[in-house]
Structures are given as C-alpha cells and as structure tokens.
Computed example of a mutant assay.
Amino acid sequence: MKEIKAVIRPSKLLEVTEELHEIDGLPGVTVSEIKGFGKGRARNAHDKVTYEMVEFIPRIQLEVVVDDGMVEEVVNVIQKYAHTGNTGDGKIFVSTVDEIIKIRTNERGRDAI
C-alpha cells in the first residue's frame, strides 16, 4: 500500500478532486488547507500571507492511501489536473504504508482502506 500526498494550488482543488472521483475503487481523499514556502520563499507571490516576517503561500494538501496498483493512475490524475506550468504548482510524494487500522472495526491492512 502507498500513501500519496500532493501539495497543490487552491485554485486547482475542484478540478483535481472531480477527476479523482472518476477513479474506480479510489477509497477516499483527505483535503487540508496548509501554508508554506518553497525555494522562492514566497517573495513575489500575490497570494502570500505574512506571519512575523515569514511569508507563506496558501496551498491544499491531498492525502490518499491506495493499493500499489492504483498509484500511477492517481499520480497521473493529480499531475495532469494540478499542472499550470508555473512556479509553485506543487509536489506529489509517494510513500510506503506499513499498516492501516480502521478504528471503528479494528480491521487491518487492505480491509481497512
């Protein structure tokens, strides 16, 4: 199993999630509003937020855990629909998940997804 985390522009959220909904068998997606900065340090950004002299850019983080066989499809959808070609489009991270436990039922592994 793999966890896919993607940091994308807020303006791309609707487009990306609509396309993710089309993936058959996708277990679900967690969406979080986040702030941060990359190599550019947010200096020239129009949508930056400043806290005590540190500039942050608002972004969206998507998180989903899928079977290994779904990784490429999910990554490709995010890559395609989050892309603008401009600096700050975001990043996609893919990590291995060792264990999943569903709290309500105590199911484990693939059954817990």
Results as ranks from 00 to 15, higher is better:
111 D>S: 04
70 M>T: 02
39 K>D: 14
30 T>V: 12
72 E>M: 15
50 T>H: 00
53 M>D: 15
113 I>H: 02
11 S>T: 15
90 G>E: 00
93 F>V: 11
10 P>W: 08
29 V>F: 11
32 S>R: 07
29 V>T: 07
37 F>G: 12
112 A>K: 06
21 H>G: 15
75 V>P: 11
83 H>N: 11
45 A>C: 06
3 E>S: 14
42 A>H: 02
97 V>N: 02
64 V>I: 12
9 R>C: 11
104 R>W: 01
95 S>Q: 10
73 E>L: 14
110 R>I: 06
5 K>G: 10
66 V>N: 05
79 Q>I: 01
47 D>T: 03
19 E>M: 04
108 R>N: 08
22 E>D: 14
51 Y>E: 05
108 R>M: 13
98 D>R: 13
108 R>Y: 09
37 F>P: 09
46 H>G: 15
72 E>Q: 15
104 R>K: 02
93 F>L: 09
78 I>P: 00
79 Q>S: 06
72 E>T: 14
5 K>F: 11
94 V>K: 07
113 I>K: 12
74 V>N: 05
34 I>K: 13
66 V>I: 05
109 G>V: 00
62 L>Q: 11
75 V>M: 10
70 M>A: 09
66 V>K: 10
110 R>T: 05
38 G>E: 09
39 K>R: 15
6 A>T: 08
50 T>Y: 01
82 A>S: 13
85 G>E: 09
50 T>V: 04
28 G>Y: 14
86 N>S: 13
47 D>V: 01
68 D>V: 01
24 D>Q: 13
87 T>C: 11
59 R>S: 03
82 A>I: 09
12 K>G: 01
20 L>W: 12
85 G>V: 04
